[in-house]
Amino acid sequence: MVEEKSDEKLGLYLKKMLKEHSLSMRKLSELTDIDTATISRIINGKRKANPAHLQKFAEHLNVPISELFVVAGYSNEYEGLQQSDILKSVESIQNILEFSNLIDNQFSIDSVERQLANYEQYAQTEEGKGNILNSFGEKLKKIGSIGPFISQLKDLFEKFRLNKGTSRELAIIGSALIYFIVSVDVVPDYIFPIGYIDDAMAIQLVTKLLTIK
């Protein structure tokens, strides 16, 4: 049996989603600002959808972006990356970011640390706490609960939700959760899973802070 190509799988998947949402390719074009001819070529397996296309499809067809990346075959390109020991330190994470050429030259670990410090203050406010408790689940749903350090994020969220820790520890934990929730990442989230490596860096930095006595 001949294995179905990724482009063909995506085309079938998109046809199914269009039918479920009672949408035509022309209507999807209007919603996404992607040319109708481009959508037609993607659906018919004549053109590979790029990450920006997938991001727009996910938003307007109400499906997790990670699901579309799997169907489109992008996940295979980074399969080893998600499980690799290369993600175990902030230094190696920055090396990946620099090697990927997906960020500007001004990005640094310091920039993430500064952002986390700002979020610490916000996480201690009632508005910040409410944002974390109300928005964390939605962000996980949006990405399909897949990505580097998602399990660590879930653990941190439970500690924050149950108020397990000192006020200082909860502020640090909250900063990582806010960083994950707020879409100000240095790498676009739709570049999956590379787009979540800076979130992973934030988690590692926070983990180090929590281990300092």
Rank of each mutant, 00 (worst) to 15 (best):
N62E: 13
K213Y: 11
T125K: 05
T36M: 14
V90F: 03
L116E: 01
D85E: 14
I178F: 02
I143M: 08
F160Y: 15
N134M: 12
I181G: 06
A72L: 04
I150G: 01
L170Q: 13
T166M: 11
V2R: 12
I132G: 00
H60S: 07
F136H: 02
L87W: 12
K88Y: 09
Q106V: 09
S92I: 04
D198R: 08
V187A: 12
L54F: 08
L81F: 02
Y13L: 08
A202T: 07
S29D: 08
L54Q: 01
S40K: 06
L28S: 02
E4A: 03
L153A: 03
K141A: 15
Y196E: 03
N163W: 07
A176T: 07
L31S: 08
S108P: 06
L209K: 15
I43E: 00
K19A: 15
I143A: 01
Q152T: 06
K5T: 09
E158M: 08
S40L: 06
E59R: 10
E169H: 03
D198L: 10
S111K: 15
L156P: 00
T211I: 05
I194N: 00
I197F: 04
Q55K: 13
L162F: 12
I146E: 03
G80I: 08
T166W: 10
L153S: 01
T166E: 11
Q204G: 14
L23F: 09
K56E: 13
A123N: 02
V90I: 13
I34W: 03
T32M: 12
L10P: 00
E20H: 08
G195A: 04
I132V: 08
L23P: 04
T36H: 14
P64F: 04
A171L: 04
P148R: 03
R47D: 04
G147D: 02
Q82P: 00
I109S: 02
Q124E: 10
S175W: 04
K141Q: 12
V2Q: 13
I191W: 04
V186W: 07
N95G: 11
M201R: 05
D185F: 01
I146R: 08
K27D: 12
L162V: 08
A72H: 01
S167K: 15
G80Y: 10
D104C: 07
L54T: 04
K164G: 05
Y119A: 05
E98L: 14
T38W: 03
I109P: 03
S145L: 09
D35M: 06
F180P: 00
R26A: 14
Y196N: 03
V206M: 05
K88G: 13
K141Y: 09
F192Y: 14
L162A: 11
E77P: 00
L31M: 15
L10M: 06
D33Y: 11
R41G: 03
L210N: 03
F160D: 02
I43S: 00
K9Y: 01
D35G: 09
Q55E: 14
T32I: 11
K139C: 06
S100P: 05
E98T: 15
L177H: 04
E169P: 01
K19V: 11
L133C: 08
I93D: 01
L54V: 07
L116K: 01
E91Y: 14
V2P: 10
S89L: 11
M25R: 15
Q83C: 10
L12V: 05
N131G: 04
L170H: 07
I103F: 09
E98F: 14
Y74H: 07
